[in-house]
Amino acid sequence: MSDSLPPQGGHVHTPLHHVTPISTYLTVFAALAIGTLLTWYASTLDLGMMNTPIALLIAVIKATLVILFFMHVLHSTRLTWVVLIAAFLWLGVLFVLTFSDYLTRAWPIY
């Protein structure tokens, strides 16, 4: 939050526009498809405690690919990164405080 004048009257902020080649999109698409197949395959295996973490790991990788490439965040301005990080911090708040309940709840009573 600075005291600087707001951009107005001729000052246009244009980030360098990065053109992503189609081959990148196709590669990412293939990776997402493989991820989906992996999720399905993992669901057929009994990995015990690791069932959910494995599924979540694949999902996180897929989401990261979508955010970085399909949503163009990889070549975006720092402001976009700040907004993205803020959103994840917020998600972190939801998780941490919710788990403050789940991890310390008196489960045996129920």
């Binding site: 939050m1 600075s2 005291d3 600087s4 004048l5 707001p6 951009p7 107005q8 009257g9």
Partner: peptide, 12 residues
């Protein structure tokens, strides 16, 4: 609020 403040209209 970020982009369309009049000239001279700083945050404070």
């Amino acid at each position: 609020t970020h982009r369309m403040r009049a000239p001279g209209l700083t945050w404070f």
